[in-house]
Simulated scan of single mutants.
Amino acid sequence: MTEIVIARPDDTWPAQYQKTAQVISGLLGELAQRIDHVGSTSVPGLPAKDIIDIQVTVGTEPDLDDVAERMAAADWELRPPRRDHPVPGLPADDIQWVKRMLVEPMYRRRVNLHIRVAGRANQRYALLFRDYLRSHPETARAYAVFKEQAAALRLGIGDYTDLKDPVCDLIYLPAEEWAARTGWTI
């Protein structure tokens, strides 16, 4: 079992994202509608696993497999899951949560690459979650405390994720209210 390690915030995470995003953009071209830095490393000052989460947004569901195949040809490894967890209060339709996930080629900077379809609930979730935490540093600090305490439980990655998902949802649900109030859009 791999131990979950929460690292101190690293001011170079955005630059590391930019470098990796350029490589991904070069591999995918117009298949990628957008490439975004998501997850905890995208929130300034937030402790995180030292893994850069990147979301590639594609236009259609068949594009998910096209991107996965193109990345696999460049030695990225396709991994489960093939969907995100449904969020209470959001559409339960499986189509809203479909994704592909890949990890970096061996001996490269650690990256989780999430491929999601534009306009789907899971694509919006990652971006709104990030922007809400960026705009609410107190919430980000409380989330950091949770992550550090969860990591101290020495869970495997699957159990850690299962524990973390509902906590993220508790953050996300008021983020939807914030988005409506402020006019936030993707």
Rank of each mutant, 00 (worst) to 15 (best):
Y172F: 14
P80D: 09
V111P: 00
A126P: 08
L46W: 02
M106W: 10
I51V: 15
R120K: 03
R181P: 08
Y17S: 03
I171L: 02
D66N: 05
T57H: 01
A175S: 04
A150D: 00
V167T: 08
Y160R: 05
E30T: 14
H37W: 12
P91L: 06
D65G: 01
H114D: 10
G158T: 11
V117A: 05
A179W: 12
A144E: 01
K99T: 04
I95L: 06
T185D: 14
I52G: 05
K99H: 04
L153V: 07
I157Y: 07
T41Q: 02
A32P: 00
L28D: 00
P174D: 04
I95V: 12
V103S: 14
D75Y: 13
A15H: 14
P166Q: 12
M101G: 04
T2G: 10
P14T: 13
D162Y: 13
R34K: 11
R70T: 06
I52A: 08
G183L: 12
L127W: 02
S25Y: 09
A74Q: 08
Y132N: 11
R141Y: 03
P91S: 07
W97T: 00
T41E: 03
Q55S: 00
V56T: 04
D169F: 13
V145F: 05
I54D: 01
I54T: 08
A180T: 09
A92G: 09
I171Q: 01
T161A: 10
I4Q: 02
R116M: 11
D53S: 09
G59I: 02
S40K: 01
I186L: 09
E176Q: 15
R124F: 11
L128Y: 08
E104D: 08
P9M: 02
A151D: 02
W13H: 11
I51G: 07
I115T: 05
D36W: 04
Y143G: 02
Y143Q: 03
D36K: 13
A150T: 02
E138P: 03
V145M: 11
V103P: 07
N112Y: 14
Y160N: 05
L153M: 09
L102T: 04
V56R: 00
S42T: 00
R181E: 12
R120W: 02
A151H: 01
E148Y: 09
Q33N: 06
A152K: 12
D75R: 04
R130S: 06
A140K: 03
L31E: 01
G26N: 03
Y125L: 03
L46F: 10
D65T: 02
A142T: 06
Y172E: 06
A142H: 10
D169N: 10
Q16T: 15
R83M: 13
P80C: 10
G39M: 06
M106L: 15
Q18H: 14
T20C: 06
L78V: 12
E177Q: 15
I95D: 10
R108D: 11
A68V: 06
E138Q: 12
A21F: 11
D162A: 15
D63M: 04
D65M: 03
T20I: 07
T185E: 14
S25A: 14
G156T: 05
Q18E: 11
K19D: 15
D84G: 13
T139S: 13
D93Q: 08
T20N: 03
G158I: 09
A152N: 12
D94H: 09
V87F: 04
I157W: 08
A92M: 07
A180D: 15
A92T: 07
P44G: 10
I4R: 01
R79C: 02
T185W: 09
T20M: 13
Q123T: 14
